[in-house]
Amino acid sequence: MTLLEVRGLGKHFSGLHAVDDVDLDIAEGRITAIIGPNGAGKSTLFNLLAGFYRPTSGTVRFHDRDITGMSPHRTVAHGIARTFQTTKLFEDATVLDNVLSGRIVRSRSTVFDAVLRTPRHRREERLNLDKAMAALEFTGIAGYRDEIAASVPQEVQKRVSIALALATEPQLLLLDEPAAGLTEEETVGFAQLIRDIVADGITVGLVEHRMSMVMSLADHILVLDHGKEIASGTPDAIRTDPQVIEAYLGADHADQEGAG
């Protein structure tokens, strides 16, 4: 079943077609990867899906509901979570407080509940703590809960950003280069984490430059170049696609590891 359906999606930045007439179907319970050389429009596409940018053309449907141009606080409420290419965290807060912030969107209590400490408020705070702890356990960083986010190792920070996104209870998780800057060994751990996330029933959209990781994880791959789709299909089909090989050989050598 298609969870997210993108048709003719475009985003222009004063003449630059960052995303140009893109179609994409993200199947529920699967990993859909988006690859392409630097500047291909991968992050822009994620920003369009999550509502950070308003598309200049096309539609996005999620669960058969039109969410085109919907602002992020609503897309998150509907079940789309995203991480950023450069890890963003609430740096001076503890790891636990970071992840607790992910619960905001699922909380119903108001200022008045907080001031009056109503049963609803206390019940919710307890639930939030449980869910946040569950997200920390799930991502394997519960031991860092009281550390300041800025002071933990980079790999842990990346896991915190995923835990934070998971705490919002998404159905679709968009990961923008989760393994960037990690060692080979850490990347293996991240691949396993992504598998666990999918096994948990969450659909994953993945932007990643590491071809080994993409090829082993993805069920479906969309290849973008200059904002346009140049190929889409299974990892095996993509691996041998002449246009893909050409796009990658034409691009910077840093990007081509394992592409052909």
Partner: peptide
């Protein structure tokens, strides 16, 4: 701390 991150976790900034 970060309006972008706040937005990404569903805060109506």
């Amino acid at each position: 701390t970060s309006e972008d991150l706040a937005r990404s976790i569903g805060v109506n900034v």
